[in-house]
């Protein structure tokens, strides 16, 4: 565990708790893509099946359990408790356009042709694109609430920090996992445009709105 990995994980944790807190506090999930949240839920569930087969550390188990629980709670708030506030008209990205190709790719390109490994690979690939419905929704409405922007910034930072973690691990531990690295880079690249808007607007106290 290096500092980049730890701060990355904490940033990830902060992101998902921030989103849950925002929805709970405002009693509204307006501007939040339920589809992105369903896909993140799918990511955690398919990746952390090893909770039942492998024990790594208390830290590892606790974080995995929190990620799964928070993801399910977020989905529940969006689709059940605060369903009336869910902006489904703007959340029109088709999930099957991501899930089907990603599932196919996980079958074709993986480390090992076993059920757990294919599901793990699927989750890595799916995570890299799961934010697209949320970004698509923002591009449709042309704006995002400030807390939603903070959520996206923390979530994007997590993957960017993981890249630094992989560089560190490659140099100091000789470790690298090509599938995770490539998918992680793709995921981080998707945030670049958003990072730019975040730094130029939200950090200067303005709401994130897209140029007309």
């Amino acid at each position: 565990m290096n500092i980049f990995r730890l701060v990355g994980d904490l940033s990830h944790l902060l992101a998902i708790l921030l989103l849950l807190w925002k929805i709970w506090k405002t009693r509204s999930c307006a501007g939040v893509s339920g589809k992105s949240q369903i896909m993140f839920g799918l990511v955690y569930i398919t990746r952390y099946l090893d909770l039942f087969t492998n024990f790594i550390s208390i830290y590892n188990t606790t974080m995995k359990a929190i990620f799964i629980a928070v993801a399910i709670a977020t989905i529940y708030l969006i689709y059940f408790k605060f369903k009336a506030t869910y902006d489904s008209n703007h959340d029109t990205f088709r999930m099957e356009f991501l899930i089907v190709p990603v599932g196919g790719l996980a079958f074709l390109v993986n480390h090992d042709f076993t059920a757990l490994e294919i599901l793990w690979t699927f989750s890595i690939y799916l995570e890299s694109v799961a934010i697209l419905p949320q970004l698509f929704m923002i591009s449709k409405t042309g704006e995002a609430e400030t807390i939603t922007s903070h959520y996206l910034f923390a979530l994007g930072s997590y993957r960017a920090l993981y890249i630094v973690n992989w560089v560190y691990r490659y140099y100091f531990e000789g470790f690298f996992d090509l599938i995770a690295i490539v998918a992680g880079c793709v995921q981080t690249i998707l945030y670049c445009d958003f990072f730019y808007l975040y730094v130029t607007k939200v950090m200067h106290g303005k709401k994130l709105s897209l140029p007309a």
């Binding site: 990995r5 994980d9 590892n60 990620f67 793990w120 996992d177 995770a180």
Partner: peptide, 10 residues
């Protein structure tokens, strides 16, 4: 193995 190692990441 390489696979086992990556599984310690979240």
């Amino acid at each position: 193995s390489q696979n086992q190692e990556v599984k310690d990441e979240l």
